[in-house]
Design a protein around this nucleic acid. Structure first.
Lengths: 217, 217
DNA sequence: AAATTTGTTGACCGGCTGGTCAGGTTGTGG
DNA sequence: CCACAACCTGACCAGCCGGTCAACAAATTT
């Protein structure tokens, strides 16, 4: 019965543990509720029930609904960006773009709620993360466009518009999270299994890589 | 000042005109508000203001918020399905799939609000149009898969998984509506102009058609 | 022109929402 | 073991929401 956190020594005082754990508990519950009901449809009570805490406790850790929502969206954006590393350190386009597609497909499967919250946020005009779009995302995008253009200039891939290639990758990979319910329905009401996820990833990679003048895996 | 509708003779009695016009006015306003705020975030008051009518008048034409929302979603689905005609009556895959992509890109530009409402509905688990997914959409999808598979068997295109090709077309074309705000931000804050929309359509067609073993336009 | 049906609207209501707060409990440092 | 800080929560509140309704205006029928 002694599940104290003596092992996690550094800063592992009981107090900070409680804070960290409860914040994560609330954030996970919020991510799901925001994804399934939208910001407007989500209620603090619903999130509290999902987290198994009294509503007032939520307001102890997150002052307002907006603040909680902002934290959820920011956390997702970080995961998003980390997947971009697949792109870097790749000398040839086939491996770089291929790995990026695989990473984004993996995220769609492991973080479907986050993907939906992000999609919802952008669809509603990005009221909370507009600054991220204008700074971090824009910089990242321009960097990748330059990289892709270099590959094209070196004759390593077909002369397509890098921007629309990126949009296609984003759209297609995130589709498996955002429209997961539709895909599930068209799959006989059952979620994609391991084999089907692999087939989806292979199909996306095959079409896109061949579409930009590469042979594929 | 006499804008009476005497020309539209058949069933153009003043009364039915009023009903038809007000319903359309409300539906257009509702489409925009639902798209920008989500179902939960939208309020009847907001829709009423957007339509320039008192709130009580909305409830005269549409009993509940759910009923109004359902009509909006159903209308979009019809537009969606009509674009599918591009697929039919096309003997070869390049023209059939190419025309379908063009039609869906056109819809994304002309009905961005509708596309967002549809996306939102599916993301939230399709509480309103689940039956459409299980019947109409499923039948349509199976039919197209069969058609594509026939093209593959006849050696007219590469042996890709037709299902994931359809998902890619849906995802990519609808992305330009659903994530229009993000695309606009990455375009210097300005919406895509005619030339840019054409470039986007051409890029999508080029990558996908080459990706499935066709030369493109 | 009377009667009837259809359209219009301000005022109102119960219920739910995000958020507050006082008072209690638990952990921590001295 | 005491004092203080962090944590917890039931009860409460003002404001907004979807929806109702009675009373009225306009069109249509008879």
């Amino acid at each position: 019965m002694d599940d104290s956190a003596q092992k996690t020594r550094t800063r592992g005082s009981r107090r900070t543990d409680i804070r960290r754990e409860n914040e994560q508990l609330i954030l996970r519950a919020a991510e799901k509720v925001f994804a399934e009901a939208g910001f407007g449809g989500a209620t603090m009570q619903l999130i509290a029930d999902m987290a198994g805490l009294p509503k007032a406790n939520l307001h102890y850790y997150f002052a307002t609904k907006e603040e909680l929502y902002r934290r959820v969206v920011e956390d997702i954006f970080q995961i998003w960006l980390r997947a971009a590393d697949s792109f870097d350190n790749a000398p040839d386009p086939a491996s770089g773009i291929g790995a990026y597609i695989e990473a984004k497909m993996r995220i769609s499967r492991e973080h479907p709620f986050g993907s939906k919250v992000w999609a919802s946020e952008v669809m509603h005009g990005a009221p909370v993360i507009q600054d991220y779009l204008e700074t971090t995302l824009r910089d990242w995008t321009e960097g990748r466009i330059t990289a892709i253009r270099r590959w094209i200039d070196q004759g390593q891939m077909a002369p397509i518009d890098p921007r629309h290639l990126l949009y296609m990758i984003w759209a297609t990979t995130q589709h498996y999270a955002d429209f997961g319910h539709q895909i599930e329905t068209l799959n006989g009401g059952k979620p994609l299994n391991d084999r089907q996820w692999q087939a989806a990833t292979d199909s996306v990679k095959a079409i896109i890589l061949r579409g930009i003048g590469l042979s594929g895996a």
